[in-house]
């Protein structure tokens, strides 16, 4: 499944070369061919995050204060961790924890 992931608000600093936009190809691994947000977060943690994962994740979700948009829609409206992703979805993570 092809997804575009964007990291902003300082989260990009946790990734290699502080790259903000990542085009990724994810293999659904749970048999029914689905990718849900929970799985995506785990994938991001093991494949993209290079340092301080605790700035991004807390427990099995994002750290409170990290905003998630799926195709520009607040993930709280899409089912949060259970939101199902589809081909060519764009998922944005923005930290609100950095200074203003």
């Amino acid at each position: 499944m092809h997804l575009t992931l964007e990291f902003g608000g300082g989260l990009e600093l946790l990734l290699e070369k502080s790259t903000k936009v990542h085009k990724v190809d994810l293999q659904p691994n749970d048999g029914d061919g689905k990718v849900v947000m929970k799985g995506l977060l785990a994938w991001v943690k093991s494949n993209l995050i290079k340092e301080r994962p605790e700035m991004f994740l807390k427990g099995d979700s994002v750290r409170p204060g990290v905003l998630v948009l799926i195709n520009d829609c607040d993930w709280e409206l899409c089912g949060g961790l259970d939101a199902e992703l589809e081909e060519k979805d764009v998922v944005v993570f923005i930290s609100t924890l950095h200074g203003g």
């Binding site: 195709n71 520009d72 829609c73 899409c78 979805d89 764009v90």
Partner: peptide
């Protein structure tokens, strides 16, 4: 990239999406 397109990206219809 995508976000540079003027106008909202059309999200696929999702169950539970509300007005």
């Amino acid at each position: 990239m995508d976000s540079a397109v003027d106008g909202p990206r059309q999200p696929p219809a999702r169950a539970g999406s509300r007005l």
